[in-house]
Design a protein around this nucleic acid. Structure first.
Length: 858
RNA sequence: GCGAGAGUGGCGGAAUGGCAGACGCGCCGGAUUUAGGAUCCGGUGGGCAACCAUGAGGGUUCAAGUCCCUCCUCUCGCACCA
């Protein structure tokens, strides 16, 4: 009776498919539970990271179904993106063909894993049925002023011939695809979505998410949004009209502002230079800095550098004339692009002032210290008492922030404001394989939205893939020449496509209504199934995807489509899948199969160095192919190993021996039940009240109680499996005759039935198979989760630990309800307790009911 | 630098402030087998013991892996954001 997962798994997948048990009908017949895993990019093959997320999601989906919920558990494909175009360039395959073939292959892999998706709801974002609605949203956003065009300096990769998001620029300033190519800055007209309008709400929404989302993700989002409170202060120009507005979080240091720093890109920078005749020097500096890529410009230990623009402005409180500099560290995109420089109290300004010999004035004096500008080693950025600040002298610097801001407001020279680090979302990409942005450029009318009735703007299919780089759409003459919808003259389509994060910002809503061809989403259905109850995905999406999706959801809520304020009520961010690396001194990284059993390279026989466990990646060759794993051990083993080896949020160390262990466990369950299947099937559900029956039933119900809690409340799937393992161990110790004895057979049947229910979400195929073997009613997958009998879960006899001075000296067994006096009498009578308290005075005793009795004596 | 998380046997990992090391891997032994493998059963932190052990050191407590303080190491995120 050998466990043959391949046969079992194929058989039950087919049975479930035919019975349609994973479908989620539109009509609700039970409370809904929307369980969602982040959808994959169809890169070609499933990797272990996918196996982990989808296994975790499936466990929850299957469990919740048994718990009586109507579970919506969909899957789809994040199908637009650059890799398809790269593949096209390399192999001459059309991106669409490449993508759809990958989808077909990966769909089959997911099916083999036995993930219980409602495949009727499958979506692919590259399908016009999907992206047409995204184009519609964009038209709405244009009307609402949420989508707008702005000239912006963007990261540009000369190799890709396209803009890159900040996230796509490596730390060293190279392109995330071409890590040899430095990213440069380029000015382009781009489409933006006004996410900053929702900045405060995105922050505020964390209240709703607290508890349901991991704290570290919320923290990362808070940093990303980067709210800071401060003041806008207007500095009049010293010569002529006009003013410079700065943002500062330290209005309390205003009296110490001795010069001004401007972003090189700031329009006033060159204006000052022109007026003062310093155009040449300033232009040289501005040109050099503006052309620098992000990392070179903003790296931490980049030297502070600047140039005097020739202009002066006036400190509004001291009345002093202060010089205006252009400085490399001032960012045009943040705040107002101009900074009041307070060298005594800001390290950057301090370094800058030292370098260019600018005055340093101390205006915040820390307690018990006298700061001297000449000898200060660095800026004092902490709090203190205001000095040299006129009427504000002696005030605490915290109070000074408010007072000086109020003072400026009174004089009309400033006001309290809030700034965010979050920028508006640039969504234009110069790429072919993306959702076309539905606008038309007309020489006469300017930018004209494509009329709704003309949607979707479908990508042209017949593009020759001869161009090595750049955007093929820009040369698709037949496609881009269109009459202007406003004036009818010849015009050009927008050739940019959307950032693929736009597609992933609302796919979870479309799953609820995937086939609607009259509207993007049906509000009534959205209310029925939304929002997502449990989202599962990797931490790498903490800031981009998860913030964009929250923003999009809020916008669609404002349009009356999306339900509630937040799209994902709970988030589980699973850890990475890691494996140790092997490096051959001659051949570099080795795949596991390139190393023999003695730890030597199969190619040269040299001993390989075994490195620390790292995230599985092709480049390090420390990967295990999911399909090979499943072929060899079956999907159930893969699932059990993944869920058992580590709690979901932690990194998981891959171990071949661990996989073997999971396989062995399933074989053990299989043999236990299959060998006794007849006895179990013919047992009646009755039992006597013998100690043996009670022992079996207590083990059963206590395990059930623990497993239920571990899955439902704690998400501790590894301990749930260990509890099931313990129960299996107990059942193995039951003597053979008991399985057929009328007194015990019923209790054992109950035990096996409950065991299989508990096993099911982890290893559904073998669970279902054994359920059939014991003559179980219907399909196990459709059965309700059993309820633990509280009377059996409760202990009737408990062992109380007796401590003397903190050390365990005895154990006494008492009835569960035993009172302190009873326990004390038993405890103090114990020989070991008497030994350790002999000749000492009992100072104190503590009784923790049913657990522990502690004696303090000296 | 700032922020978050982690550090427990040979390994992965368990422990609402209450017997540290559940469960699994590995290892050791036994049964079965011609043999090996597979399977089933048992043992397995260190120490002969008193006892000692949760990164290091302090503290709170009758009681600390868990709470507090200082420090070390690792992982992740942010990083000239005014």
């Amino acid at each position: 009776m050998k466990y043959r997962p391949q046969e079992i798994e194929r058989k039950w997948r087919k049975a479930w498919d035919e019975a349609g048990v994973d479908r989620c009908p539109d009509a609700l017949s039970a409370p809904k539970y929307y369980c969602l895993e982040m959808f994959p990019y169809p890169s070609g093959r499933i990797h272990m990271g996918h196996v982990r997320v989808y296994t975790i999601g499936d466990l929850l989906a299957r469990f919740k179904r048994m718990r009586g919920y109507q579970v919506l558990h969909p899957i789809g494909w994040d199908a637009f993106g650059l890799p398809a175009e790269n593949a096209a360039h390399r192999h001459g395959t059309h991106p669409a063909k490449w993508t759809w073939e990958n989808i077909a292959f990966m769909r089959e892999q997911l099916r083999q894993m036995g993930i219980s998706y409602d495949w009727e709801r499958e979506i692919a974002t590259c399908s016009p049925d999907y992206y047409r609605w995204e184009q519609l949203f964009f038209l709405w956003m244009m009307k609402d002023g949420i989508a707008f065009r702005k000239r912006a300096t963007l990261n540009w990769c000369g190799e890709c011939q396209t803009v890159l998001a900040n996230e796509q620029v490596n730390r060293d300033g190279t392109c995330f695809i071409h890590d040899q190519t430095p990213v440069t800055q380029k000015e382009l007209d781009q489409w933006f979505l006004g996410i900053t309008r929702y900045a405060e709400e995105l922050l505020e929404g964390h209240r709703e998410l607290a508890g349901g989302w991991p704290e570290n993700i919320l923290e990362m989002q808070r940093n990303w949004i980067g709210r800071s409170e401060g003041a806008e202060i207007r500095f009049p120009l010293a010569d002529g009209d006009g003013e410079i507005t700065v943002f500062t979080t330290r209005p309390d240091t205003l009296f110490g502002a001795t010069f001004m720093s401007m972003a090189p890109e700031h329009p006033m920078t060159m204006e000052f230079a022109r007026k003062s005749g310093r155009e040449r020097e300033v232009r040289e500096f501005v040109g050099r800095v503006a052309g620098q890529d992000r990392a070179a410009r903003t790296g931490e230990d980049q030297a502070k550098e600047g140039v005097f623009t020739g202009g002066y402005c006036v400190n509004p409180v001291t009345g002093n004339r202060i010089p205006v500099y252009a400085a490399n560290f001032v960012l045009y995109e943040y705040g107002t692009g101009a900074v009041m420089a307070v060298p005594a109290h800001d390290q950057r300004d301090f370094e800058f002032a030292k370098k260019y010999g600018l005055p340093i004035v101390v205006v915040v004096q820390p307690e018990g210290e006298a700061l001297d500008p000449a000898s200060m080693p660095g800026a004092h950025e902490g709090p203190g008492t205001l000095v040299r600040s006129g009427e504000f002298d002696g005030m605490d610097s915290e109070d000074g922030k408010k007072s000086i801001t109020r003072h400026l407001e009174g004089k009309g020279r400033g006001r309290a404001t809030v700034q965010y680090r979050l920028r508006d979302w640039g969504v234009s990409r110069q790429r072919y394989w993306g959702c076309p942005i539905p606008v038309i450029h007309c020489e006469a009318c300017g930018i004209v939205p494509v009329p709704e009735k003309d949607l979707p703007v479908v990508l042209p299919e017949d593009l020759p893939y001869t161009r090595e780089r750049g955007n093929p759409l820009a040369s698709a003459e037949g496609w881009l020449r269109v009459p202007c919808p406003a004036c009818g003259k010849s015009a050009r389509r927008e050739t940019d496509t959307f950032d693929t994060f736009v597609e992933s910002s609302w796919y979870f809503l479309r799953y609820i209504d995937p086939k609607n061809d009259r509207a993007p989403l049906d509000p009534e259905k959205m209310r029925r199934f939304g929002p997502v109850d449990q989202y599962v995905g990797g931490v790498e999406h903490a800031c981009m995807h998860l913030i964009y999706a929250r923003f999009f959801h809020k916008y669609l809520r404002d349009k009356g489509l999306a339900p509630g304020n937040e799209p994902f009520l709970r988030l589980l961010s699973q850890g990475m899948v890691c494996m140790q690396t092997s490096e051959c001194p001659k051949h570099g990284w080795r795949y596991p199969e390139e190393v023999d059993e003695n730890g030597a390279c199969r190619q040269c026989g040299e001993k390989v160095n075994v490195g620390r466990s790292m995230k599985m990646s092709k480049s390090k060759r420390n990967v295990v192919e999911p399909s090979e794993l499943i072929e060899r051990y079956g999907a159930d083993t893969a699932r059990v190993f993944i869920l058992f080896a580590a709690p979901p949020e932690r990194d998981l160390d891959w171990s071949e021996q661990g996989v073997e262990g999971a396989y062995r466990f399933l074989g053990r369950v299989y043999r236990l039940v299959a060998q006794r299947a007849e006895a179990v099937a013919s047992a009646s559900p009755v039992w006597d009240d013998s100690a043996e029956v009670r022992r079996i039933r207590q083990a059963t119900h206590r395990t059930l109680f623990k497993v239920t809690g571990d899955i439902e409340e704690r998400f501790h799937f590894n301990t749930a499996i260990s509890a099931v393992m313990e129960m299996v161990n107990i059942l193995y110790l039951v003597e053979d005759p008991a399985w057929t004895a009328p007194a015990t057979a019923g209790a054992l049947r109950e035990a096996v039935e409950i065991l299989l229910h508990m096993l099911f979400p982890f290893a559904p195929h073998v669970g279902e198979e054994l359920w059939a073997r014991i003559g179980g009613e219907g399909l196990l997958c459709a059965r309700p989760w059993p309820e633990a009998d509280a009377a059996l879960v409760r202990e009737d006899q408990v062992e109380v630990v007796v401590q003397v001075n903190g050390k365990v000296r005895a154990k006494v067994t008492v009835g569960a309800g035993a009172g302190e006096e009873e326990v004390r009498a038993l405890a103090m009578a114990e020989t070991r307790v008497r030994e350790h308290t002999a000749g000492k005075k009992i100072r104190k005793t503590v009784y923790v009911p049913g657990k522990l009795f502690s004696v303090v004596a000296n």
